[in-house]
Structure formats: structure tokens, C-alpha cells
Design a protein around this nucleic acid. Structure first.
Lengths: 237, 237
DNA sequence: ACATCAAATTTTGTATACAAGCCTAGACAG
DNA sequence: CTGTCTAGGCTTGTATACAAAATTTGATGT
């Protein structure tokens, strides 16, 4: 049933002359969004049929996803969506917090006036959307808030690295925002970050941002209990 | 002349059932070591002939290298060893310093007694080798010193990420150690890092490590002037 | 009923064939 | 002599064919 022909149109992406790239983006999104669950098998022939291409571009897309850590390829045993150990996940959240803190520190020192205004607007958007109790929209506004901070670092490499990690953790973070009172706390934490950045207090900005992001790791025990089992199957070391 | 048959034996690596992996490792090393210079063209057919395989595994290896940022692949225009902008390089050095600082901070908090002893041994090895004025050996001892710190973080993700960045910058760092008096300063900085970690002073360890690594960025103007031109060709954005 | 092993099937990894875009060489006009 | 355009070759991107390993399936014996 997963291989009906209704999906064959899939690659309407701007054709960069490489179907493999479009495929990679498509699969990336399916993984980030949770449409493809960790542990799920990625059959080359199946994907080829589903997207109406040969196995070659499929393989190329899978290799790139493997390099990004989104999937795992065991030799001669095919690819599965990366299922992360609880320990690995904790470690990644830990690094995530420090990377975002780093971003905030740089942003506090380097943001131009226009960027500081954009930061305030992004924060205000979060506040407004929080009132509507629409998790999806708040999630997006929150993402943009962090993106504005990234842009303020004036360091493209840090920006990319942090964003990659954030994306990789996104499917796990989704489970976490629905906790009671989390949104209100999150807004207060944003507030602290904004204040520190606007004041140009780099250390305080870093501390506030680390605290904000760390929450996700700290409530991790709760998070684990809420995750569907596929998420946590150990993949052996 | 680059495609004589003398290289065809190349892939003596432990065959993981994937020639592409062996190829990737091989090309990685050639890039890190500087045997392949930034900007150099990577012709698929040429590499295939040189390693005695077909284009398929070559392409797979190139794709993985591209994902790691070591090479650039423009659609329909082939692959070249990534040539980094001065600006990008500065940004990467900046992040490198903060990542290593992060490692030191964690290590100061988490290293087991055995690891602390290993750190002292690694530092002593640096001191000893510095006396012999053998840059190659000192370079290796220095690498091991940093590896010991990585291991002390107890965070495999941070370890891998930092190591990846370090490797990516390695070919640029080589030019830098030969400065007069650099080794002596480097040793003094190591000393400060070791002292802070042994004392369990996380913040001081981070600060000392950042200072140690930052030097590479600070003397960057000098470095730039010493680099052969291929290193700095802008690759357009 | 269960375990064990072997053949068959499926799936991955590599090679080769084909299609399509890019670059260069050379003709030609100004 | 210089610039532009075109034809050809060359390289990349994709499809298909083949080889080899892994999983499944079924037979067989206990």
C-alpha cells in the first residue's frame, strides 16, 4: 500500500539538474516532520518506484542523509532512519544548549540595530501567537526567533552547524512543547534572552539562552516516557 | 602522468564490503594532508581509473565528502576540493576555539582520575617532543593532547563534531606552527589548560583552551600571507 | 513442535550503457 | 585583431544490468 502510484509526482521541486538533491530534501523533510519514523526501513527499490526514478539517485540521496546523520547505512544491510540512543540524545541536547548559547553571545556583541529590531519583532510574534494556543504556529514563530539570533552571530558556519543540529533534534522536540505551562515559561525565557542581547550583555545572553534550551534536556525523563518506542531503539555502537 | 598504473593498488583498507567507503577515507586523508589542494578538480573518470574501480563508488565517495564540506559539487560541473574564503576560515577558527573551550569545560567537570593522569602524560609528551624540534612529531603529540580532552567530555557528539572541525581546518593549521616561538607559547597554554582541568575549574579551563586555540585565528593575517594562492580562491556564494 | 540447515528470493554494491548539459576550439563577422 | 556563435567532445547525471551478500522460506530430522 505504501507504493501506490499516487506519489510518483513527488519531485516538483525546482529541478537543479539533480533529482538526487530533490529527493534528499524531500526525505529530509519527511524525517524532520516525523512522517518517517526512526527505525523505519528505507528500501532503495521501493523509494525508486515511489518517486518514479531509478535506484541511482535514491542511493545518492541516502548517502547524503547518512553523512548528515539522519539515517544509518549498515553495509549490505540497507538504510534505516537513525534511531538514537537515549544517551546520544541527551548529549546532543547538551551540545545544542551550548551552541545556542554561543549564538546568543555573538549576537549580543554583533547585532546591527536593524537586527535588534527584528529580534524584538520575532519575540513579539511569539507572544501574540502564544495567546491563540495554536501549537503549530507558535512552533514556527519560535523557530524564527532562534533563526534571527543565528543571523545575528555574523558567523555563517556557526549558523549552519547550529541549525543542522536543531533540525536533527526537531522531531524529538515536538513532543515537548505540549507540556502544561511550557509556552509561558518559554516566553519568559525568550524575554530574558532579548533583554540581554539588547543590553549587549554577551555573557548574560549566553546564560539565558543556555537555560532556555537546556530545559528541553532537563525535562528529558518526562519526554522519554512520552515517546513512541521506535524512537529509542538502540542502534548498537 | 597522474593516472599511471602505480596507484591502482590503493584500496588496501580493510574492505568493509564498500569500496566507496575506502575511497572516501583515502580522499579524506589526501585532503587533510594537503596532497589534494583546495581548488583542485576531482574528475570522476580519472579517480575511477586511478583507483581501479568504476565511477559509481567514486561518485558515492565524492557525495559523502561534499556532505562533510570537504569538497564542493556544482551541478553538472563536477567536484573540486573546497576552497574556503578568508572570511569563512576566520569564522570556522572562531567556532573551533569555542568548541574546544566547551570540551575543556566539560572535561574539567567530568574527567575520571585515570583520564586526568592521561592528560598529564599527553602534556608531558608534548614537552618532551618540543625539545627535539621535530615539528611532525610535536604536531602529532599536540593532536593527541586535544584528543584526550575530547575523550574527557563524556559527550560523544561533541567529541565527533569538534574532531570533524579540527580535521577540516588541519590543512590550514599546518602553516601556522612553524612560527618562531610558537611551540613554547603553545606549551605554556597547554600547561594552563592542564592546571585548570586538574583543579576542576571548568570556567578557567574553557578560558585557557579558548585562548590557546584562538591564537590560530589571531595570527591569521600572518597566516594568510603565507598561504599558497589556491587556498584562498573564493568559491562564490 | 522445534531447531537446523540449504535453497531461493530479495536487496545491496558495482559496473556499464545511455542521455543531457557544459566547455572548448574554431569559424566567421565586424 | 577581437568578439560572437556554433559544432564537437567531454563530463556529469541517470538508468539498467550484473554480482554478491543477506534474509527468508521451506524442508528435514530430532
Amino acid at each position: 500500500m505504501a507504493s501506490d502510484a499516487s506519489h510518483q509526482v513527488g519531485l516538483t521541486q525546482k529541478d537543479s539538474g539533480r533529482r538526487a538533491d530533490a529527493l534528499r530534501q524531500r526525505l529530509e523533510r519527511e524525517i524532520f516532520s516525523g512522517a518517517l519514523l526512526p527505525g523505519e526501513r528505507l528500501d532503495e527499490s521501493g523509494l525508486a518506484r515511489r518517486f518514479g526514478v531509478s535506484r541511482t539517485p535514491v542511493r545518492e540521496a541516502l548517502l547524503q542523509l547518512a553523512s548528515a546523520g539522519l539515517i544509518e547505512m549498515r553495509p549490505r544491510q540497507g538504510a534505516v532512519v537513525a534511531a538514537i540512543t537515549v544517551q546520544q540524545l541527551l548529549q546532543m541536547f547538551e551540545v545544542m544548549a551550548d551552541m545556542e548559547a554561543l549564538c546568543a553571545r555573538y549576537a549580543a556583541r554583533r547585532m546591527a540595530p536593524a537586527e535588534r529590531q527584528a529580534l524584538q519583532r520575532a519575540h513579539k510574534a511569539c507572544v501574540d501567537l502564544a495567546r491563540r494556543r495554536d501549537p503549530e504556529q507558535y512552533y514556527e514563530a519560535n523557530r524564527i526567533f532562534h533563526e534571527v539570533v543565528y543571523a545575528g552571530t555574523r558567523n555563517a558556519y556557526l549558523e549552519e552547524t547550529t541549525r543542522a543540529l536543531r533540525n536533527r533534534l526537531s522531531s524529538y522536540r515536538r513532543f515537548q512543547l505540549h507540556q502544561p505551562g511550557r509556552v509561558a515559561n518559554s516566553l519568559a525565557e525568550h524575554e530574558a534572552v532579548v533583554a540581554a542581547i539588547l543590553a549587549g550583555d554577551a555573557e548574560q545572553a549566553a546564560t539565558a539562552m543556555r537555560a532556555h534550551v537546556s530545559v528541553q534536556g532537563e525535562v528529558f525523563t518526562d519526554l522519554v516516557s512520552m515517546l513512541p518506542p521506535h524512537y529509542l531503539q538502540a542502534t548498537a555502537s
